[in-house]
C-alpha cells in the first residue's frame, strides 16, 4: 500500500492540506445549498438530491483527509518517535510536521462530519 502513496514533499504547505479540504467542503455545501434555496429551478434537482450530493461530497472530502493523514503518518515516521520532537535535526523537524499534520487531519475529519450533519437532519429550505 505504501508504494501507492506519492513521493514525500518537503514543504510548510502540506500542514494545511486537511483544513483546506474542510474549507472547500464547507464552502461547496454552503454555496450549493444557498443557490438551491434561492433558485430552486436552476440546479434542476430536488432537496433529496441535494442531500445525496452533500453526502457524496462529504465522503470524497473524508477520503482526501484520510490520504493526507496517511501521508502525515509516514512523515511522522509511522509513529517511530514520541513527541515533543524538539531536537535541532531535520528528522525531528519532519516528525514534528508529520505529527502536527496528522493532528490537523483528525480535527478536519471531525469538522467535515460536523458540517455534513445538517444535511442528515434537515429536509427542506425552511426559513
Amino acid at each position: 500500500m505504501l508504494r501507492l502513496l506519492p513521493k514525500e514533499v518537503e514543504s510548510l504547505w502540506t500542514l494545511f492540506t486537511a483544513p483546506v479540504v474542510w474549507a472547500g467542503h464547507f464552502l461547496l455545501c454552503y454555496v450549493v445549498a444557498a443557490i438551491f434555496c434561492e433558485k430552486p429551478d436552476f440546479l434542476g434537482f430536488d432537496f433529496a438530491n441535494l442531500r445525496v450530493a452533500i453526502g457524496i461530497l462529504t465522503l470524497l472530502s473524508l477520503s482526501v483527509i484520510v490520504v493526507s493523514a496517511l501521508l502525515a503518518w509516514r512523515q511522522w515516521g509511522f509513529g517511530a518517535g514520541d513527541p515533543p520532537h524538539d531536537d535541532p535535526t531535520r528528522r525531528d523537524r519532519l516528525h514534528f510536521q508529520g505529527y502536527a499534520t496528522l493532528l490537523l487531519s483528525g480535527l478536519s475529519f471531525i469538522a467535515v462530519i460536523f458540517t455534513a450533519l445538517p444535511a442528515l437532519f434537515i429536509d427542506g429550505c425552511l426559513r
Binding site: 464547507f26 455545501c29 454552503y30 445549498a33 444557498a34 434555496c37 458540517t115 450533519l117 445538517p118 444535511a119 437532519f121 434537515i122 429550505c125 425552511l126 426559513r127
Partner: peptide, 9 residues
Amino acid sequence: GLPQISLAF
C-alpha cells in the same frame, strides 16, 4: 431569515 440548512452549516 436565511434557510435553516445554511444556518445549520
